[in-house]
Design a protein around this nucleic acid. Structure first.
Lengths: 229, 229
DNA sequence: CGCGAGCTTGACGTTGTTCAACTAGAGTGG
DNA sequence: CCACTCTAGTTGAACAACGTCAAGCTCGCG
């Protein structure tokens, strides 16, 4: 991690919700003590169990949000690309993070002092409502994940993950942002079975995969596998 | 479901957060259009997929919050006893419920018009903050659940559920509020295995169980099973 | 060149689900 | 009051689904 601080909020091209709120509140940005930080691939942005001290906003790059389970066995809940609140889900209870976030690409984040933000939304609920909305959305995602992980077989789960990635990149052709092992962690599958399933789907002509380059050839069928799985 | 409406907020013995907020806002309770409703055992209080129209508050009884999965295969996330927000997790995104809630005992709930509540917290964030706090707590619970369901074996999971119930009732001796099947749904285990595990734990002297009456005899060991599972 | 990380495949064993059959008790209608 | 039925609980056995272990492969990098 490297604090960059080369962009003042006023010149930042991401006019985030918080920025808007500060503007309309007439407060000074100084009090926000915004920190811009740069994270390299594989660097941890926030760690499960750590004290929540800042609101973190993803400005550039891609990151994975995951729960650290038993003996290094993680579950990736979803990926994030800008704009996205990183600290969101642990925001309100705000003692400790209940999950970790790690950059899977070079990423930039913006950190705002939590106390400042709290003071801010005490007088301007716009921010709070927006945070809440994003919050609610995440929860809906997680609910779906729980069902998927517990009631679908691994074939259905990997299909769902591939569809998720396709949606994430808005294209049926994308480059896998994660290793096979991590793709497994997105679906709670062992690395070996992940590989097996990928080759299986490839041989069946449902996907095309070469190293990290994935093309979904039969989205309809893949969706059916995900549903029936 | 039966609308009772026999208690006005002012005489209700549960001075809920919303009540407090209305008081301090100087608004009239009439606008809240509060409805008190009575639910019998097994009646559904809110249904996954339904439109969210009211904030629902559990005033009396016990209910289970669960996700309806594939072909009648549910997962119970947690139980609720008063005071508890029922509509909480779907509150802010507030299009549709992402889960269902069913009474497992005779229950009373209080329903507040959603638009009223929204207007209320636009001018008084106290409510909003309280809702958020409760919200955050639920999320922490769910995170733990995800790990438990996906990384522990069934023995560890049932141990965790029993410990959860023991905590829920604040006693190592309690009467199971749910059937074996539902206890399974709390741990994502089939009914058959749930039974098997219970008898196993009983034979090992770790718990005592007779019909629905459970006594945890060796909490330390049970906790160890839950952790190592 | 050698080393390590990521990837791949096969064999094997464990775990947990499902099916099927049976019991006990609670409720119902004749 | 008895037979009937329905639900909840229980147990055994067969089977399928996955994870784990082990081995080998490739590619990029020091």
């Amino acid at each position: 991690m490297k604090v960059t601080r080369n962009v003042a909020c006023s010149t930042c091209r991401h006019k985030c919700d918080i920025f808007q709120a500060v503007l309309s509140s007439g407060r000074s940005f100084d009090a926000a003590k915004t920190i811009q930080a740069h994270f390299r691939k594989h660097e941890k942005i926030c760690k499960q169990g750590d004290h929540v001290s800042h609101a973190i906003y993803l400005v550039e790059g891609t990151a994975k949000l995951y729960i650290e389970g038993i003996n290094g066995h993680n579950i990736i809940l979803y990926l994030m690309k800008p704009p996205a609140y990183i600290g969101l889900l642990s925001f309100f209870e705000s003692i400790q993070y209940t999950y970790s976030v790690t950059a899977i690409e070079e990423s930039k984040v913006c950190m705002v002092d939590l106390d400042f933000l709290k003071a801010l939304y005490l007088e301007n609920h716009e921010v709070l409502l927006k945070l809440n909305k994003a919050f609610g959305k995440s929860v809906a995602l997680i609910m779906n994940k729980i069902i998927c992980l517990n009631q679908k077989n691994i074939r259905g789960r990997i299909a769902e993950s591939l569809l998720y990635l396709s949606g994430f990149y808005g294209s049926s052709r994308f480059s896998l942002p994660v290793t096979r092992k991590e793709l497994g962690e997105m679906s709670a599958i062992s690395e070996e079975n992940t590989v097996r399933l990928l080759t299986e789907l490839r041989k069946e002509g449902i996907i095309k995969i070469e190293n990290r380059d994935v093309t979904i050839r039969d989205k309809v069928l893949l969706r059916k596998i995900s549903e029936l799985g």
